[in-house]
């Protein structure tokens, strides 16, 4: 733009701001889609069962959504790259076992207190690091790397498992779940805090912008000489970190270490990201949309329990809702030559 006359440049920039306004508006609308689904669901369930929107039930939904929101926050970073992290269930198992064996418990004499929490979160971080290294340096596809580390996480948990369920007796850990502010446990506030923190990280830092860029056009970015592997590594570490934190929070809530603590959380988390509008091909979405997706799933689950739908029907309905929402919200993106994998 250096050699342009002032008028041309002004015209172009006006056009650009026009376009960017339209772009912004459109993006907002897209973000509102999942929110709309959420509101519709809430209203439908309220109509079907009065007092669905009672404070008590909303709090129950918030409690149930807290951990899925944390998981989708981490997962979003990896998905924004166009990669995937399947290891969270294994990471949570390993982190839960680490926590319950290092903090005061009824199996061994350890009493690491807050360092036990740090160690358990550190386990998550280490898993993220290993995932990232295997993906970037050994150039192995993330899907298979994280599938492998999923098994390894479960394995670490089963090696650590003593002959009986370790019960956590640490005051620090238990107070995470037992401290209530305004009827909500600290876990909900931790989730909100992490969500805000990583939303800011994603949208207002260099790293965040680079993660979007990697997801959008990795090949181009590599050619610019930017340290792309570092950005990818960071995303995997964030994802592992979140899974580690989730493991700690879940064990705090249960009050014990459990190797099956993360069972059945992975696929809903991936679905939540997609529901919220984070594209699996990368480059588009964010932690807030993903979090909305997670809340939608929890509302659906809670509501279906409330109206007394059996567990089998619940599977069918939630599968169908996921498909319909994703199909409808993706309609405007349909193009003849669009690549969808």
């Amino acid at each position: 733009m250096k050699n342009m006359s002032p008028t041309t440049s002004a015209r172009i920039s006006a056009q650009q701001s026009d376009r960017s306004f339209a772009l912004h508006a459109r993006r907002w609308l897209q973000n509102l889609g999942p929110l709309g689904v959420l509101i519709v669901l809430l209203l439908v369930f309220e109509a079907a069962r009065h007092n669905f929107l009672s404070a008590g039930n909303l709090a129950a939904i918030a409690e149930a959504s807290a951990v899925p929101v944390i998981l989708t926050t981490g997962l979003s970073f990896v998905i924004l790259l166009g990669a995937i992290d399947l290891s969270m269930e294994g990471v949570m198992a390993a982190s839960s076992m680490t926590l319950s064996l290092l903090c005061a418990n009824d199996v061994n004499g350890n009493h690491w207190g807050i360092w036990g929490i740090a160690a358990a979160i550190g386990v998550g971080l280490a898993f993220g690091l290993v995932n990232g290294l295997l993906n970037t340096i050994l150039r192995m596809p993330s899907l298979i790397v994280t599938l492998g580390t999923w098994f390894i996480g479960l394995g670490i948990a089963s090696i650590l498992f003593p002959s009986q369920v370790p019960t956590v007796q640490d005051h620090w850990v238990l107070s995470i779940a037992s401290t209530h502010i305004a009827g909500l446990s600290l876990i909900v506030f931790v989730a909100i805090m992490l969500l805000v923190l990583f939303h800011l990280l994603l949208h207002y830092t260099h790293l965040g912008r680079m993660i979007f860029a990697v997801g959008g056009a990795e090949a181009t970015l590599v050619m610019t000489g930017l340290p792309v592997p570092l950005f990818k590594l960071a995303a995997f570490i964030i994802s592992g970190l979140m899974a580690g934190i989730a493991g700690v929070l879940l064990s705090a809530r249960l009050g014990d270490g459990n190797a099956n603590i993360g069972d059945g959380l992975l696929f809903p988390a991936v679905s939540a990201c997609v529901l919220g509008g984070t594209l699996l091909s990368g480059g588009r979405g964010g932690v807030l949309p993903s979090a909305i997706g997670a809340v939608v799933l929890e509302v659906l689950n809670n509501g279906l329990i409330q109206i007394g739908a059996g567990p089998y029907v619940r599977n069918i309905i939630s599968g169908a809702v996921i498909l319909i929402v994703v199909a409808v919200s993706g309609l405007h993106l349909r193009r003849k030559l669009r690549v969808v994998k």
């Binding site: 696929f267 991936v270 679905s271 699996l280 091909s281 996921i322 193009r335 969808v340 994998k341």
Partner: peptide
């Protein structure tokens, strides 16, 4: 044009 991952997950 729904990603296969989510189609088949559903």
């Amino acid at each position: 044009q729904i990603p296969s991952f989510i189609t088949t997950l559903g």
